[in-house]
């Protein structure tokens, strides 16, 4: 599977202005159990962070705190100077455990909806689907897509939203070898445009000069 060069993916999307994510002294507890204590992180444009650690160590909880779904018990999260609450919508691309696809909706209809909802142009849909090699499935209802194909479609949605900071929860979970390579090139294209990404993952993802954090050590 040749590694697609970052420039091949060419929906005409402008560069991002610089958006840094600063996390300082974050601690998170769930049901009385402390998952993360004193976690700090700076994510400058172009950075990539891979979070690993046994399940139940708080990877997902940390991502959900960064997205503003969960209030941390201590510490601060800042996008530039703003807390996640106000600004999360404009600068966060989110990929949760679930792909956000409706069973009886086709990728074409879904991605058009997400483009309209986030105020992006629909022209970027096809190039991005080609980048994830799912363009042939554009009119097949999501229920009849495989888990891997659904995940690729969800990754297209994340890219389509054109947001600088990506939070990806197990992005490569159901992906095969080809899928992981295409994910790597999508992330490389995103970072080349000044975007940044934090991913929680079990698998070894070899994204060039990505910082690796083992959450198990943070308790």
């Amino acid at each position: 599977m040749t590694m697609q060069s970052a420039t091949e993916i060419s929906p005409d999307m402008p560069e991002f202005e610089t958006e840094t994510l600063r996390v300082s002294g974050l601690s998170l507890a769930r049901g009385g159990i402390e998952l993360v204590r004193g976690f700090s992180l700076d994510l400058a444009p172009g950075d990539a962070v891979l979070m690993s650690g046994p399940n139940g160590t708080g990877k997902t909880t940390l991502l959900r705190a960064l997205a503003g779904f969960i209030r941390p018990d201590a510490g601060e999260i800042r996008f530039g100077e703003l807390p996640p609450g106000e600004v999360a919508a404009d600068c966060l691309g989110w990929l949760g455990h679930a792909d956000g696809l409706k069973p009886n909706e086709t990728p074409r209809a879904a991605l058009r909806f997400w483009a309209d909802l986030t105020g992006q142009s629909r022209k970027a849909i096809l190039p991005l689907m080609r980048a994830m090699a799912v363009e042939s499935l554009i009119d097949r209802p999501a229920a009849r897509l495989s888990r891997g194909q659904q995940r690729r479609t969800a990754l297209v949605r994340v890219a389509l939203a054109n947001r600088p900071i990506w939070l990806l929860d197990e992005p490569a979970g159901p992906l095969d070898g080809g899928g992981r390579a295409r994910l790597a090139s999508l992330v490389a294209w995103h970072r080349a445009r000044g975007g940044s990404v934090i991913a929680a993952t079990h698998q070894r993802l070899d994204w060039p000069d990505a910082r690796r954090i083992d959450l198990g050590a943070h308790r």
Partner: peptide, 20 residues
């Protein structure tokens, strides 16, 4: 009761960490 629940959860977590 809430302290009991927290203690039980902490014990489960410690057991999981040991097993890992």
């Amino acid at each position: 009761r809430r302290r009991v629940r927290t203690l039980q959860r902490q014990r489960e977590q410690a057991a999981r960490a040991r097993e890992e």
